[in-house]
Simulated scan of single mutants.
Amino acid sequence: MTTTRRDLFKLGALAAAAAALPSFASAASEAKPVGKAAKPLTILILGGTGFTGPFQVDYALKRGHKVTLFNRGKRPSPEWPSEVEQLHGDRNTGDLGALKGRKWDVCIDNPTSLPFWVRDAGKVLKGNVGHYLFISTISVYADGSKPGITETSALAQYKGKDAMAETQESLRADIGGLYGPLKALSEAEAHKQFGKNVTIVRPGYIVGPRDETDRFTYWPHRVAQGGEILVPGDGTDPVQIIDGRDLGEWMIRLAEAKTTGVFNACGPDYTLSMDAMLHGCQAVTGGGMTLTHVTPKFLEEQQVGLPIWVPSKDSEYAGYGSVSNQRAIAAGLTFRPLATTVQDLLAWFRSLPAERQAKLNAGITREKEAELLKAWHARKG
């Protein structure tokens, strides 16, 4: 099926998104000034140089907090002001000596996927931090087939021999089977080590500037190129994304409010369909495009997957496109307009070296897309 922009408005499920389309092009704007927090905090960020960490640091500094980073020191990071303290160690080897004998109001744990990382951090930090915030994932849920996953849904179960013996190497070797269960056990270990003063944040797809995965970037980049675009599904499948800045800044506000509990950090705060997302991208990038929808069965036969999209029909993963975020919204999670995310993401992406832009880390090439479109049209005859 080929869908044009006019066809979008015929789909009842897109009514809310369609109403917002006229404002998309002008929604992106300069960031608003950030006020100071009522009480400055001392914040330890484990990691801090990856995707969301720098956003946490930047926002925390603007709010008047003192920030300490702890990581291996091997990844390039922004040039922070001199007041940002940087400590180095290696959680893989248990080298946390730089944290011993220190106290912080808050610890934000960004990179952990292994339970022993939380255990070892607890040995050093227990009693020395007042609040522990852990970035988890919606992959902790056992069953992604049912829409409306909430924070109380059953979690994935670890089936290995010794979770504390798992390493980054074993995780990479079997990421589909270990990632969710090990994250779930890391959550449990956080509660074991830090008691009631724990916040668990479970994001889905994190997108926006600094996203090196290109999972979401593939779509606005492709829309900007125009022409006939191969789109999975019928256009109504729900899409959930969260800008890394929204996630990072919200975690600082959770720390300020001493908010504990478990939260699904998925966005936006309305139902966003695949087609609405693509037309939102087009409103920012301009140019013409034609959407050609192909069935999940066709993609399965062609052994092709496309990023961000999860089919809502005939798929065991349907629920991961409709995770409940009501608890997080009630706790103050807010979302930038889609236009802002798309505009800023493309500006960042286009600032990268030409060779990096030429080969995305997700999605399909234009040549592969043309091949698939040809096969689809031949089948439809």
Score class of each variant (00 low, 15 high):
residue 347 A to V: 08
residue 260 T to K: 09
residue 230 L to V: 00
residue 34 V to F: 07
residue 54 P to R: 04
residue 262 V to M: 05
residue 234 D to I: 01
residue 238 P to Q: 11
residue 142 A to D: 14
residue 61 L to K: 03
residue 316 E to W: 11
residue 325 N to H: 13
residue 274 M to G: 07
residue 152 T to L: 14
residue 236 T to Y: 00
residue 191 H to C: 08
residue 9 F to K: 00
residue 98 A to Y: 00
residue 194 F to P: 13
residue 363 G to C: 01
residue 285 T to P: 00
residue 206 I to P: 10
residue 107 C to T: 15
residue 305 G to A: 11
residue 286 G to A: 03
residue 266 C to H: 03
residue 111 P to A: 06
residue 235 G to E: 09
residue 268 P to T: 10
residue 287 G to R: 00
residue 286 G to Q: 04
residue 202 R to T: 05
residue 322 S to A: 15
residue 229 I to P: 01
residue 116 F to L: 12
residue 322 S to R: 09
residue 289 M to R: 13
residue 371 E to V: 01
residue 43 I to H: 05
residue 45 I to P: 02
residue 71 N to R: 11
residue 126 K to T: 13
residue 274 M to I: 08
residue 124 V to Q: 04
residue 50 G to H: 05
residue 347 A to C: 02
residue 198 V to K: 01
residue 70 F to W: 01
residue 134 F to P: 04
residue 174 D to S: 10
residue 155 L to S: 13
residue 48 G to K: 00
residue 354 A to L: 13
residue 95 D to L: 07
residue 145 S to W: 14
residue 264 N to I: 13
residue 343 Q to G: 05
residue 179 Y to D: 12
residue 98 A to N: 02
residue 17 A to E: 15
residue 290 T to K: 09
residue 29 S to K: 15
residue 371 E to W: 00
residue 246 D to I: 04
